[in-house]
């Protein structure tokens, strides 16, 4: 673990745009029925970095996150304008299948949601639905994913017990293990620590720093300290608009916009 102390913030090594942009959001607007949730948002995320979305509730940060793997398609009456590109291809390209897209973009939810199955079956679920089921591959994936989620040592002796026998923090790490089982390129995390206690939160944060080496991570958080501790870039949203997007250190120490400063200094939330 490189960061065992919360204040040892990893320094974003460059300004936005210097890294190759991996995810590009271009003039993206989004509606739930008649209500517009996102207004003309443009953003670029570099590869193998952690990008944090912050902002008060209802500001659209989760909506944008859930558009990155098109989870919002499940809702009736949604509509969008603009485009999101992943590694150069549009998410909305007719040739892109939602299912294969979701295999490239793993997701971790706010409330840990393991399946009512064994630990083992939870992790191999993405492989099983993809029709890959050779015993050795499954075993290998389980060990790799659990090690990747720093859970292997705790559960290696009870892989076939129910996932619900684990503690909350362990269950959330199990969900992370499940999300990386299919080797996605991108990991979306929607307030992954909101339902966890501080110790479990710290563990997840340490884990994120490890995962950063392999995955492009986008995290939505309400916890400003968390954004400050572990992200490379931070985007501040307010009322469906992107207010400011900058390297984390810069955004927290010298925000360019007054609204950003008001928010991070806690004058409104």
């Amino acid at each position: 673990m490189t960061t065992s102390q919360p204040e040892a913030t990893p320094t974003p090594n460059s300004a936005v745009g210097h890294d190759p942009a991996f995810i590009e959001v271009e003039r993206f607007s989004f509606w739930y029925g008649a209500a517009q949730a996102l207004f003309d948002i443009s953003l670029e995320f570099p590869e193998r970095r952690i990008t944090a979305f912050i902002g008060p509730s209802g500001c659209g940060k989760s909506t944008l996150l859930r558009n990155l793997n098109r989870m919002n398609d499940l809702i009736d009456g949604v509509r969008h304008e603009g485009d999101i590109r992943l590694d150069g291809t549009s998410l909305y390209d007719p040739a892109v299948e939602v299912i294969s897209l979701r295999k490239r973009v793993g997701m971790v939810f706010q409330k840990y949601n393991p399946f009512p199955k064994s630990i083992y079956e939870n992790i191999v679920f993405p492989l099983r639905v993809a029709g890959r089921g050779s015993r050795s591959e499954l075993d290998e994936t389980v060990e790799r994913s659990l090690r990747g989620a720093a859970l292997w040592d705790e559960v290696k002796d009870k892989l076939h017990e129910s996932a619900y026998s684990l503690s909350g923090g362990q269950q959330q790490r199990l969900c992370i293990a499940r999300a990386i089982a299919n080797r996605p390129q991108i990991l979306l995390m929607d307030e992954p620590c909101a339902a966890l206690d501080p110790v479990a939160t710290l563990k997840i944060e340490e884990l994120m720093m490890e995962l950063r080496k392999e995955y492009t991570i986008v995290i939505v958080t309400h916890n400003m300290q968390q954004a400050g501790r572990c992200s490379d870039h931070t985007a501040f949203f307010y009322l469906g608009r992107l207010i400011e997007y900058a390297p984390t250190l810069q955004l927290f120490e010298s925000p360019a916009k007054e609204q950003t400063e008001a928010y991070i200094s806690g004058r409104f939330s």
Binding site: M71, R102, F109, N113, P116, P126, V129, R178, A181
Partner: peptide
């Protein structure tokens, strides 16, 4: 059946029918 596990299954790349068959129906 909680919405959370349905979304989790879909986010794992399961189709709607796979979600129903493997997660929703057993639940």
């Amino acid at each position: 059946v909680p919405r959370g596990v349905r979304e989790a299954a879909l986010a794992c790349g399961a189709s709607k029918w796979q979600t129903i068959q493997r997660i929703v129906l057993p639940g």
